[in-house]
Simulated assay, not measured.
Amino acid sequence: MPANIVYDCASLGSVIRYLDSTPKPPERFRKKLAAWKSRNSTGRLVKKEPPRERPTYSSPACFTLHEGDFGQDGTVIISVRRTYSVETDLRFEIVQRPAIGSVRVLQMLGDIPELLHLAPNRESAERWLANNRYSRAYLEEVTADEVGADVIEGRAPA
């Protein structure tokens, strides 16, 4: 599916796969394989930004995928995130939506919510938030109504 469908239909916390429809090169071609992996992977949807109109420029809507954290001993050194415009040539698919009863830990950045953590339940989310202080964080539960709306409106993953 094109990127604008992910922007319109996927909820924060969904796991999204992106691909460029080229075949995977053999393992022995390390540079080609690394380039291929940069255009064929998965990530968790953490932010969706609307289009912007400024006097000097305009930008299309975009979304950000969190691909992973790297570090050691529980300390994150690098967090890998990629932002994609709805006009990108990559193809996307929704692999997994957040489960009913899971809880999103969100933070408002301006007027745009950003996913900080997806917990399996409220207790786990509150514990994570107590250990990771954010000034504007709040909790939002994934409800059956949200998941049901996705199925009824045809947004359930294939």
Rank of each mutant, 00 (worst) to 15 (best):
V6F: 02
P26Y: 12
L19I: 02
E49I: 06
C9N: 15
K24E: 10
T42W: 03
A10F: 01
L33Y: 10
P26T: 09
S14K: 05
E67F: 11
G13V: 06
R44L: 08
Y18I: 06
L65P: 00
L19Y: 09
P55G: 10
G43P: 01
R52H: 13
E53I: 13
S59I: 14
P55L: 08
I16F: 00
L12I: 05
R17S: 09
F29K: 15
I5Y: 03
P25H: 05
K32T: 07
C62K: 12
P60N: 12
E27T: 08
A61M: 02
P51M: 12
R54E: 14
R54M: 14
F63Q: 07
F63S: 05
K32L: 13
L33W: 02
R52P: 08
T22A: 04
S58I: 09
F63Y: 11
R54I: 09
P26V: 15
A10Y: 00
P55I: 04
Y18F: 15
T42G: 01
P55R: 11
W36M: 06
E53N: 11
Y7M: 02
V46E: 05
P26Q: 08
P60V: 08
I5N: 01
S59W: 11
H66W: 07
G43I: 03
P51F: 13
E27A: 14
P25S: 03
S58A: 13
F29G: 01
E53A: 13
E49T: 15
R54K: 11
S21F: 08
D8A: 12
D20R: 03
K24R: 12
R17G: 07
C9P: 03
A34L: 05
P26D: 13
S59P: 08
Y57V: 14
V6E: 08
Y7T: 01
L12D: 01
T56Q: 13
R39V: 10
T64H: 07
K48W: 04
W36F: 08
P51D: 12
I5T: 04
S58D: 13
Y57G: 10
K32M: 11
N40K: 10
S41C: 06
R39F: 10
R30A: 14
W36A: 06
A35N: 15
A34H: 02
D20G: 04
F29I: 12
Y18D: 02
S11Y: 15
K24M: 07
T64Y: 03
G43Q: 02
S14L: 00
S59C: 11
S21E: 09
H66Y: 10
K37Y: 14
R30N: 11
Y18K: 03
K37C: 10
T56R: 14
P50E: 09
D8F: 04
A10P: 04
I16P: 00
L19W: 12
R17I: 01
F29M: 14
G43R: 04
I5D: 03
P25M: 02
P55W: 10
A34T: 04
F29A: 12
V15G: 00
P23L: 03
L45R: 01
W36H: 07
Y57H: 14
F29L: 15
K31H: 14
